[in-house]
Simulated scan of single mutants.
Amino acid sequence: MSDPKVEYPGAETAAGPGEAPRCARRRPRRWPGRVVRWAVTAVLLAVLPFILLVRGGVFAYQQWGLGAWSSLAVSAAAAALLLAFYAWAASRRLGAGKRLRKFATRVAVLAAAAFVLYSLLVVAGGNVKSEEVRAEYLGLHPLLRMAVSVFVLADADAVITDAARTPEFYARAGLPSNESSLHFRQDDGFVHALDLRTLNRPEWRNLAAELAFRAMGFHTLRHVGTADHLHVSLR
Rank of each mutant, 00 (worst) to 15 (best):
53 L>V: 06
31 W>R: 08
7 E>P: 00
46 A>T: 09
98 K>S: 13
56 G>R: 07
96 A>Q: 10
54 V>P: 01
60 A>N: 05
36 V>F: 02
59 F>K: 01
81 L>V: 07
88 W>R: 13
51 I>N: 06
77 A>C: 12
12 E>Q: 12
10 G>I: 01
39 A>M: 13
94 L>A: 15
83 L>V: 08
36 V>L: 12
4 P>R: 08
76 A>M: 07
93 R>V: 13
51 I>D: 11
80 A>N: 06
65 G>I: 05
83 L>Q: 12
93 R>D: 10
53 L>G: 01
87 A>S: 05
69 W>L: 15
90 A>W: 10
95 G>V: 03
78 A>T: 00
55 R>Q: 07
62 Q>M: 08
6 V>F: 05
40 V>C: 04
96 A>M: 10
70 S>L: 14
15 A>Y: 06
58 V>R: 05
44 L>Y: 07
29 R>N: 05
92 R>S: 14
36 V>Y: 03
19 E>A: 11
97 G>H: 11
98 K>P: 05
92 R>M: 05
91 S>Q: 09
100 L>Q: 15
79 A>W: 08
72 L>G: 11
58 V>D: 03
28 P>S: 06
7 E>F: 00
3 D>F: 11
57 G>R: 02
98 K>Y: 11
5 K>Y: 05
29 R>M: 10
7 E>T: 04
92 R>L: 11
62 Q>K: 15
94 L>D: 14
55 R>F: 02
7 E>I: 04
42 A>L: 09
31 W>Q: 00
27 R>I: 12
54 V>A: 06
70 S>T: 13
15 A>V: 01
99 R>L: 13
35 V>P: 01
37 R>V: 15
20 A>H: 09
13 T>Q: 14
74 V>T: 10
30 R>A: 12
64 W>I: 00
57 G>I: 00
90 A>K: 12
91 S>A: 15
66 L>S: 12
85 F>D: 07
23 C>F: 14
32 P>C: 03
90 A>P: 01
13 T>H: 13
46 A>I: 00
